Amino acid sequence: MISIEPVARPGAPLARRNPVAKLAAALLFSFTLLATLDPLAPAIAIAVELAVLPLFGLRYRVLARRALPLLLSAVGILVTLVLFAADQSGRVLLDAGPVLVSTGVLFTALGLVLRIFAVALPGVIVFATTDPTDLADALIQNARAPARFAVGALAAFRLVPLLGQEWQMISMARRARGVDAGRNPVAKLRLFASTAFALLVGAIRRGTRLAVAMDARGFDADTPRTVARRQHFGLADTLLVVGAFALAGAALTTSILVGTFRPLLG
């Protein structure tokens, strides 16, 4: 079951901040780290993210569960780079026929994996501590986003849990018809691809019906919309954004001073 509801303690200091402020802080913190390829800056950023996690009211176990797909993708990227990288600079650590692992490849792979975590974890934390309705309201009130876009995104976001249920229904329906891959890995891959395609077609049809229904109810009108819940953007929210940018800048500065800084461009 896919869950999109916030899992943080509502009374946590940073969990109570404006959704737009948390989103802006996450974006600034993440995109600043894209300026370097070295592993030191993202490692410092990950340490900062884990240190402030209690202020968001999140448990480390909950974050690990939410970030499990990220961990699996990072392991895949690490293995791919180590086995198939063209640049094998540095000292050779393993030379076993077609498998050649060097310190240069490990340094590059480590930097990329750490950057993936450093960039993605702030987004995971934000969406784990923010109610989707509050985020849509804040985008309309504080970020001046078009109501059509914000409400449409909220409606689509609310449909995400249905994807897991739909996948189970398709799988059980095919199993009831005798469509089973057994232990054949090729057949399992084909069955997975066909199930994913059926899920995609169903999601597109549901989204089209939802868009037509929302337009029929006046969501495409140019008339200004009112909001039921006010989202205030105060001094604490501004300090959160500034603090996130300052911490990311401090991580980059440390990398430059230590001498590990490797610019993305140039």
Rank of each mutant, 00 (worst) to 15 (best):
P6R: 11
V7L: 12
L14W: 14
L14N: 08
N18I: 04
P19C: 00
V20C: 02
A21D: 08
K22F: 08
S30Y: 10
S30I: 11
F31D: 04
T32Q: 11
A35P: 03
T36Q: 08
P39N: 08
A41G: 08
A45V: 09
I46R: 04
I46P: 04
V48D: 09
F56Q: 08
L58T: 12
R61H: 10
L63E: 06
R65H: 12
S73D: 00
A74H: 07
A74Y: 06
F84A: 07
A85W: 01
D87A: 03
R91H: 05
P98F: 05
V99P: 01
S102I: 10
L110C: 13
G111W: 06
R115P: 02
I116S: 09
A118M: 05
A118K: 09
V119W: 03
T133L: 13
L135V: 07
A147Y: 01
R148P: 00
A150L: 02
A153D: 01
A156H: 07
P161R: 10
Q165R: 14
Q165L: 13
Q168D: 14
S171E: 15
A176W: 06
A187S: 11
L189K: 02
F192C: 05
A193Y: 04
F197A: 15
L200K: 04
G207I: 09
M214F: 01
R217F: 08
A221R: 12
D222Q: 13
D222I: 05
F233K: 02
L235K: 03
A236E: 07
D237P: 00
T238H: 00
V242Q: 03
F245P: 00
A246H: 07
A248K: 07
G249F: 08
T253C: 03
T254C: 13
S255M: 05
I256Y: 10
G259M: 12
F261W: 14
P263Y: 03
